[in-house]
Design a protein around this nucleic acid. Structure first.
Lengths: 337, 337
DNA sequence: CTGTTAGCGCATTCAG
DNA sequence: CTGAATGCGCTAACAG
């Protein structure tokens, strides 16, 4: 078995008491630098690794962060997860997963079970659960610290977000600069905070270019490939077809491309298509998609770091903002003459 | 705070000793059915939830299963993960993640750290780490129970696998039935156990159809989109072009489609393309891919169930086999005249 | 079939 | 700045 070494052994080896070792390990004050070093040496030599269950039990905390999600995009989630894991590892925390159903009653039930069983010290919320009122209420009730990723409202919340509106604006500006004047938008799932920001950015982009806002060019989607297909059918069936479509995520953009190709339209010669998220698919279809790249892994990592800070010193956690970049690929091109 | 209720409170409420409650909760024998029910009632009424850290500490087990991986496919992983989670939940276990680097020295180091910190009671191995000799050796050395998903060698191993060879054979037979006679294969990453099985199935498929095996039609890939692109370039550059390509996974198949479309070839009219895995991408490109579907979530779930059985009663875990299905979509069609 | 007694390995009082 | 005692909530032996 791994490490039968206990804190007691380390204490003996270093010629100090258990408590002193504990102090050093937990970075508590009141340890002379010299003893501190002796202890660390002993730890090193004996290859001591603290027993996490014992720490939890005695210290009344679990060293566990739960990642809550209800998100159809595997790639997005894996990115976030990878970041959360990295942050946890760095601080000797563990991560656990909390897949939640979307129905708000069941969501809360599942959440309660998760909390009951594993008692995480804090949770990271990913969209769309970030904005689920019932969950947020329960979190407040239980006084569980949390960090939100891309929440709809960012005031007084710890977490990380991106300037969604600006990103959408950038995409539209890009299309405008290519000469497009009939630019459609397929919006996202209405429950996602991002959806309204992306619409706002779209509108602002039009305004900036002095293009008239045409409601028939804005079709609601659900962030799924199928909803993109459906929206594209509507859009491409219009008497006055758009020459460019900005979809609120890549899955829907892929749906648009599929419909276009199926109808014999060339992308981007006949139709330009822009997406959002930069999922792997974007670079693995023909043509590869122009999209907005967000640093997903960093978002997971930073949100977790802020959460951990807030757990360790309440009130310390902040709302961070990360930069986006417009990833130009081949699905967008000059507007047809 | 959630549940300040302790086992002691339950014992008192039920009029029995702590130990009896413990027995009931752990499904140990030697409890009269009647007392058993009294205890369960008390548990229910008090909404008692055992404290996992205390259980771990006292019982010298962590109720933790680690999922080890080094796999580029987010979708595959999320599927497996979802299954592992489901199995864990059902048995009151928790899951943790162990992303590993591929370099065998670092892999083992990372593994050791993971084990040291969280002391899982067992681990689930996903390809390609399933077949990493250094890791397997360490696992044996530490005597940690494990389950393997799709390992290269299945004898005397607990886990779950699929008949990869048969699946590849089925795909080739499908292409043959469409009239194809020049069928190429892009093989997978050489370290994956599946790779050789899929090649074997491909060869057997040709043999069955009395088609000559032509080594120039077999190009090595890496399971990545880019390697698929590269292989496709080679294949489509041949003087005697194949009319069908069977790629060992969907990412590479997507690469083949992209190259074909780029060159103005129609899929499937000019070139049929078959994949493997049935990732979401397969149904989200144009044209949607004909591929082999494997029940990934079930594989994760079953492997974990077998692992848990083996942990609870050593020697009980088995190697299970799950069925595959050929998912026919539009990337395959009759061979051109 | 059931209860009692001791720890599991650590952090947390509170003294020095 | 450091140490000795106490208990976190549960299970494992051993009694009965």
């Amino acid at each position: 078995m791994a490490s039968r070494v206990r804190i007691e052994d380390v204490a003996e080896a270093a010629g100090v008491s258990m408590k002193t070792v504990s102090r050093v390990l937990n970075r508590e004050p009141n340890v002379r630098e010299q003893t501190r070093e002796r202890v660390l040496e002993a730890v090193e030599k004996l290859r001591y690794i603290p027993h996490i269950s014992a720490r939890s039990l005695a210290g009344n905390r679990s060293f566990l962060i739960a990642l809550l999600y209800n998100n159809p995009s595997d790639n997005y989630l894996m990115g976030i997860m990878s970041g959360v894991l990295a942050a946890c590892e760095q601080q000797q925390y563990n991560m656990m997963l909390g897949p939640l159903e979307w129905d708000s009653r069941r969501m809360v039930t599942q959440f309660d079970e998760l909390i009951g069983r594993s008692r995480p010290d804090g949770v990271v919320l990913t969209p769309p659960v970030t904005d689920a009122p019932a969950l947020l209420a329960r979190l407040a009730e239980l006084e569980i610290p949390f960090a939100s990723i891309s929440p709809k409202i960012r005031k007084d919340v710890v977490g990380v977000g991106m300037d969604e509106k600006q990103a959408a604006f950038d995409m539209v500006s890009h299309l405008v600069s290519l000469g497009h004047r009939r630019i459609a938008h397929i919006s996202g799932h209405p429950a996602h905070g991002a959806t309204k920001w992306r619409i706002a950015g779209y509108q602002q982009g039009l305004k900036q270019a002095r293009l008239e806002y045409d409601p028939t060019l804005v079709v609601p989607g659900q962030f799924s490939f199928d909803s993109g297909v459906e929206a594209a059918r509507a859009l491409l069936g219009l008497k006055q077809r758009p020459t460019a479509v900005f979809a609120a995520n890549d899955d829907m953009a892929a749906g648009v491309v599929a419909v276009a190709l199926e109808r014999g339209l060339r992308v981007p010669e006949d139709l330009s298509v822009g997406g959002f998220d930069d999922i792997p698919l974007s670079s693995q279809t023909f043509p590869p998609l122009t999209t907005v790249h967000q640093p997903v892994r960093d978002m997971g990592r930073l949100a977790t770091l802020e959460l951990l800070a807030d757990i360790q010193r309440p009130g310390t956690g902040r709302m961070l903002h990360v930069p986006h970049t417009l990833q130009l690929r081949r699905s967008t091109g000059p507007a047809p003459a």
